[in-house]
Amino acid sequence: MTETLAAKGIRIDFIPRGGVLRRMEITDEGATVAPLHQAPWSAAEVPPDAPPHQAWLAGDFFCAPFSASPDGLHGLPANGTWTVVPSTDGTLRAVLQGAVQGATVVKELALQDDHPFVYQRHLFIGGTGTLPVANHAMVALPNGGKLSFSRKRWWESLAEPLETTRGRSRLAYPRRAEDAAEFPAADGTEVNLHRYPWGEAHEDFVAGIEDPASRLGWTAVVRPTEGDLFLSLRNPAQLPMTMLWHSNGGRDYAPWNGRHRGCLGVEEGAALPMLGLSSRETPDPLTAAGQPGQVILDPSGTVDIRHVIGAVRWPSGQTVAGVMLDGDVLTVTGDWGAERKLPLRGSWLGLAAPFSSPKPKPALDWDL
């Protein structure tokens, strides 16, 4: 069953199985912008031993843990079922069936008239221990794209390639590089992560670590042929990592079969275990800089993780040079002078709030 939430100029579809924000449509400058990716197979084509979420791979979903898990790759939030609960405030609210390390997990998706953004948050109520987390937005890039980011300290690949025997990975693993335009490839050349695609038939994963001085974390993906722009916004003090999944025909087995192309995962999170070199260091370089490498659950409180995605027309096709938030106005500028001023709930991301500060359990007006 699909749940729909709409406001003036924006509409989203939500699927409780896997908690998927399946489709996001924004009406802007007289056109419909719908940048999210959907896998080209049916559920019947997915092998029974594959992670359940592959049967409905689309849009954006939440991963906890953002790694292998007994509940399937990316954990119960990505592979289980969410129960939508009644709401009177215009927010789509759902509760995960089952616990994550003892925590109840609540998802909220909210829209606002004339805002080209989805305001989403995930609440961990109770629970114990630490775990890596990430949102898992996927942008459709059938005609390529241009990527820009808020300032990063470095870029780093996994400990091992995603594919070795049943497909192909093109980056070097594990490696680090300060410049996204010069990331090492397995063949000794360098790859420019500001462009997609940068290779033929490959499956790769690389993460950028935010500069601690960043106030607003952002990723911008320009689709020049489509004339639009995808934006991902976060509090870098909460989610200091931007992880890029390049899925472009590099897997030869079912259900992928070499046909999963033009998909860019823009996965914002706190997931130190995904760093092939940094995760082995003591202290790790995130902790040493005061950045969270994972979420710390609070047995007597909540952890509140917020993320914003959206899209607008961007007919110039210019690479995004900057994204700046001033009050409730987000200004996006291109490298040749293009500019959009967009309405945004400026305080919603809590940019000055610490990530792991315990909060009391909320008084809930709906039944878990």
Results as ranks from 00 to 15, higher is better:
Tyr253Met: 04
Ala103Leu: 06
Asp71Lys: 04
Gly350Gln: 11
Glu339Asp: 02
Ala271Asn: 07
Gly250Pro: 05
Glu156Ser: 02
Ala137Asn: 05
Arg306Trp: 07
Asp335Glu: 14
Ala363Val: 15
Leu57Val: 02
Val303Trp: 01
Leu233Thr: 09
Met241Ser: 13
Leu162Gln: 12
Val118Phe: 01
Asp326Val: 10
Ala103Lys: 01
Leu131Glu: 00
Thr91Gln: 12
Asp60Glu: 11
Ala186Trp: 02
Leu344Phe: 15
Lys8Gly: 15
Leu351Arg: 12
Ser157Asn: 04
Lys146Pro: 04
Arg170Phe: 12
Trp245Ile: 04
Arg195Gln: 15
Glu25Ala: 07
Pro224Phe: 12
His53Val: 10
Ala271Leu: 14
Arg11Asp: 12
Gly18Asn: 07
Ile209Asp: 03
Glu203Asp: 15
Asp328Tyr: 10
Pro236His: 13
Pro77Asn: 04
Glu29Ser: 03
Ser67Cys: 11
Pro358Gln: 12
Ala353Lys: 07
Ala177Phe: 10
Leu286Thr: 10
Ser169Trp: 08
Leu96His: 02
Gly217Val: 07
Thr104Lys: 02
Cys63Trp: 04
Gly293Glu: 05
Gly293Gln: 02
Pro47Asp: 05
Gln238Tyr: 08
Met243His: 02
Val320Thr: 12
Tyr173Trp: 03
Trp348Phe: 13
Asn79Gln: 04
Leu96Lys: 01
Tyr119Met: 09
Gly126Glu: 15
Gln38Cys: 10
Ser69Trp: 00
Trp82Asn: 07
Arg168Ala: 15
Gly98Trp: 07
Thr331Tyr: 09
Gly145Gln: 01
Val332Glu: 13
Pro240Ser: 11
Met138Trp: 09
Val191Asn: 07
Ser316Met: 13
Ala134Trp: 00
Val84Asn: 13
Ser150Arg: 04
Asp13Pro: 01
Gly19Thr: 03
Ser279Gly: 10
Val133His: 00
Ala270Val: 04
Leu364Ser: 04
Gly262Val: 08
Ala289Cys: 05
His246Leu: 15
Trp56Leu: 04
Ala34Trp: 00
Leu216Val: 03
Arg313Phe: 02
Thr4Ser: 14
Ala94Ile: 08
Val20Thr: 09
Arg11Glu: 14
Gly310Leu: 09
Arg223Tyr: 06
Tyr173Cys: 14
Ala39Val: 10
Thr302Met: 15
Ile296Phe: 03
Ile26Leu: 06
Ser67Gly: 14
Gly258Ser: 07
Pro255Trp: 05
Arg153Pro: 02
His37Asp: 09
Val266Phe: 12
Arg166Met: 10
Thr128Pro: 03
Asp284Tyr: 06
Lys361Trp: 01
Ala99Trp: 03
Met324Trp: 05
Ala64Ile: 01
Gly199Asp: 11
Val133Thr: 00
Ser356Asp: 12
Glu210Cys: 11
Thr128Met: 10
Leu342Arg: 03
Gly129Asn: 08
Ser247Asp: 12
Asp28Tyr: 05
Ala220Gln: 11
Asp187Cys: 12
Arg93Met: 13
Phe61Asp: 00
Phe14Cys: 07
Ser148Lys: 06
Arg340Met: 01
Pro142Trp: 07
Ala110Arg: 13
Asp114Asn: 15
Lys152Cys: 14
Ala58Ser: 13
Val266Leu: 09
Leu275His: 00
Glu108Phe: 06
Ile26Lys: 03
Arg22Thr: 08
Pro362Glu: 11
Ala110Thr: 13
Pro362Ala: 14
